[in-house]
Amino acid sequence: MAKIKGTVVIDTEHCKGCKVCVVSCPCGVLDLSSQVNGKGYNYCYMANPDACTGCASCAIICPDTCITVYRQKFE
């Protein structure tokens, strides 16, 4: 059975840790890191990468446009 998987790349220096992506992800993939970036923000990361389908909801809503999304179909 074909499976669609996704992944995201987060520009952690652009991220301000607003968490809007975290609550917008339908699959619970993202969370805020306990680490901080150069500006002192807890940036977002893939806490549950296996659940990502590459739907891009997080990237679409990100006010700082710091998420890049990839999606691949596995047969």
Partner: peptide
């Protein structure tokens, strides 16, 4: 997932500059 051009579904548009916006976290302006 291979991070290739072929699999790319969302990336930052070239019409946005590389500047980090001065807006507060989560601001609708961004």
């Amino acid at each position: 997932v291979q991070k290739t051009q072929e699999n790319l579904v969302y990336s930052r548009t070239k019409v946005l500059t590389d500047n980090v916006m001065h807006y507060c976290p989560g601001c609708s302006h961004g």
